[in-house]
Design a protein around this nucleic acid. Structure first.
Lengths: 268, 268
DNA sequence: AACTAGATTTCGGAG
DNA sequence: CTCCGAAGTCTAGTT
């Protein structure tokens, strides 16, 4: 108890380093002041953890009863409210037009609002244990491999991986119903629509391919238009649907095999 | 500088309260010990912030150069690595089968692995500023309004909102191609497949409806099967596709009515 | 602003 | 375990 009383006053501040400021068990008044101070410059990541009540009104509406939540506000004004489980926040706001902290009935209330769509997240802090402002400044390069875009690049350069004699005419060709991943011609000169999926292909992918083939068919007229779904695998129902529609499946891998590392012993 | 030196040693521990333990600028050895200690019981939320390098191998592969990141590990073993921007973490793992901290070349390395799919997130901490274990235990009720499920409930009870004389036979009727939101019969006794969307209906929704109608058609045989897409609005191309397939669109509102609160003045 | 489609989508539910 | 579909999906790209 005395410890907690002590904590109330404790504040850590460093000129340099990552934890710019931290309050333990602040009063509503102190918390509000902290939030205003920490959020204003929009240059650090702010977190508040403790007992709170959360409501959201916008595209839908939600309420969360009093519980332990961790609120995170990033420099770009994005907000997320985490529960003890799961990657996905309980409530969030990708972009905020206005974010304020007010005092209401002796409690600190965080309001994050957005126009277009009109949305409001409201967090009522009842018993805050920790509030901190983190400096998270060093941004660095990030590289992702294995996306569908990369797969498209590879297959555009090596269409023989799909079928011998295939020649790619277009990538991302726009037709009325959307964008065709690869538009090609086969060895017999027939037009081919290729739809790529980086993961297991579903019925949705078959529908997509079907739409594209129909669009091309309308333009091409009488000639035969083939449709190929290229993916590492396909679900059972999707295969049935595909075959029923006279479309084809070709197995291709999104990730070009990971080389085994011989330099270091594997940890697992 | 002296402050930072002081911090190295600083440790906060409380029997009760939310911040169970916190280290500022720990050494790799201390950090590893902390992580093992904090992660083992799987009863608190662990965060580590500082300079790190991150790599991911699994469904895709990614590498992030040395930068400032905030690592969050929840009780359920989910992991997320945040940059200063955006709701979505740079790297994540929804569930982890094993999570360990090891010392490698004098650095603390966090390894989070998963089978099915095989995935590994690897975080090499170079200069940690803050590591903390938060108690985030009070779980509470969460209620979301305006979901498609609620819309389905409302319309199942009041099918006349879709069309006079409509009688609902089934909700979530499973056919080979998926689950039909509402299966009904119209005033003329024709079978009706209703697909609901809480937002603007797209071509995908039309495809979905088309698949369901086809499935029912195969079962019913000769009789006419109608397909109705019920949503607050529909995109242009989706409407064209819909009409081309002989399907129908009915405008319904997702959110019934939000009661006005008269007890408190609105904040906006 | 509208529309499309990808995503390491996540998450939950049914079989 | 597979499969399916919703989601306040988010996010990026194009018209």
């Amino acid at each position: 108890m005395t410890e907690r009383a002590d904590c109330r006053a404790s504040t850590v501040s460093y000129a340099a380093g990552m934890l710019r400021e931290q309050l333990l068990s602040p009063t509503p008044v102190d918390l509000r002041a902290f939030l205003m101070r920490a959020l204003r410059p929009r240059d650090c990541l702010v977190q508040v953890g403790g007992l709170a009540e959360v409501s959201y009104h916008g595209r839908a509406a939600s309420t969360a009863e009093v519980g332990s939540y961790l609120v995170m506000i990033k420099r770009d004004g994005s907000l997320q409210i985490h529960t003890p489980k799961g990657v996905k926040p309980m409530n969030w706001q990708p972009k905020t037009d206005e974010i304020t902290a007010v005092l209401e009935e002796e409690q600190c209330v965080l309001l994050a609002s957005r126009r277009s769509p009109v949305e409001l997240v409201r967090v009522t802090f009842l018993e805050v244990q920790m509030a901190q402002a983190l400096e998270l400044n060093e941004e660095a390069g990030f590289l992702l491999t294995g996306s569908e875009a990369q797969m498209q690049e590879t297959l555009a350069a090596h269409p023989e991986l799909i079928e011998p004699g295939l020649r790619v005419l277009n990538r991302e060709l726009l037709v009325e119903s959307g964008g065709i991943d690869l538009y090609a011609q086969d060895a017999q000169g027939r037009f081919v629509v290729v739809e790529l999926k980086r993961g297991r292909a579903t019925q949705d992918a078959v529908s997509q391919l079907g739409r594209y083939v129909a669009s091309v068919q309308r333009v091409v007229g009488t000639g035969v238009v083939r449709g190929i779904l290229a993916a590492p695998s396909i679900t059972g129902p999707a295969r049935k649907e595909l075959e029923g529609r006279g479309l084809e499946f070709v197995e291709v891998n999104a990730l070009p095999l990971v080389e085994k590392r011989t330099s270091q012993p594997s940890l697992f």
